[in-house]
Amino acid sequence: MNDKYRALRNGLAVLGVLTLAVGAYMGLSWAPAEREMGEVYRIIYVHVPAMWMALLAVTLNLVCCISYLFKASWGKDALAEASAEVAVLFGGFGLVLGSIWAKPTWGVWWDWDPRLTSMSVMLVAYLGYLAMRKFVEDPEKRAVWSAVVGIIAYVDIPIVWFSVKWWRTLHQVQSTPKTVDADMTLALRVNAFAFLFLMAFFVWNRYRIARAQRAAEVALPEALPTSAGHTSTGPVPGVLS
């Protein structure tokens, strides 16, 4: 396959950067200061979209994992790998921003807030997922196992959230300022779309890398015991572009 989508991918990047520039202007100067949080609240314009994108990316990962188990294809495996890595990127810096937000707001770097805590558990779970992919050499086994791990890890997210919430409510109730006006919502949406474009750009490029790696791994049939004969569930190397 020729790289006919290259223009589209680069267009996504340009669109993302432009929207991000508008979003930064809106978030940093156009949107009004918040009533209680003052200027510090402007962190949410990068923190919240990052968390949304992390959740979106792990959801994409789950879809790939489930659909891989029903019908195997290298494409789904590559997309699962790409979305997990991008989820770790957004979740990783999103958590750092959450910690920076906690410092002026609650006076500590880490407050065991249910949302931040469950996100950090999720981040560690997906780091484990990525590490597992590195530790398994057989591409077919890696694909099946990581699909299983991806499903198990995703199901854990709401359970972690509930458990941490219960655990915390016995201590204190976190009050999140609910003083949001229309300008703030708009600025948040612009930033979220900028992050979405950039995430799509990242996932797409990471997917191509994963696809090329799979192609290189499967191109050596002798290296794999199963690819010589017929495999019932494994994808056929020939379908690789």
């Binding site: 940093l28 200061a33 918040e34 009533r35 209680e36 949080m37 003052g38 200027e39 510090v40 402007r42 962190i43 920076i100 937000w101 410092k103 002026p104 707001t105």
Partner: peptide, 9 residues
Amino acid sequence: RIQGGWGYV
């Protein structure tokens, strides 16, 4: 309101 805080931002 929290004053300043541009450093965090």
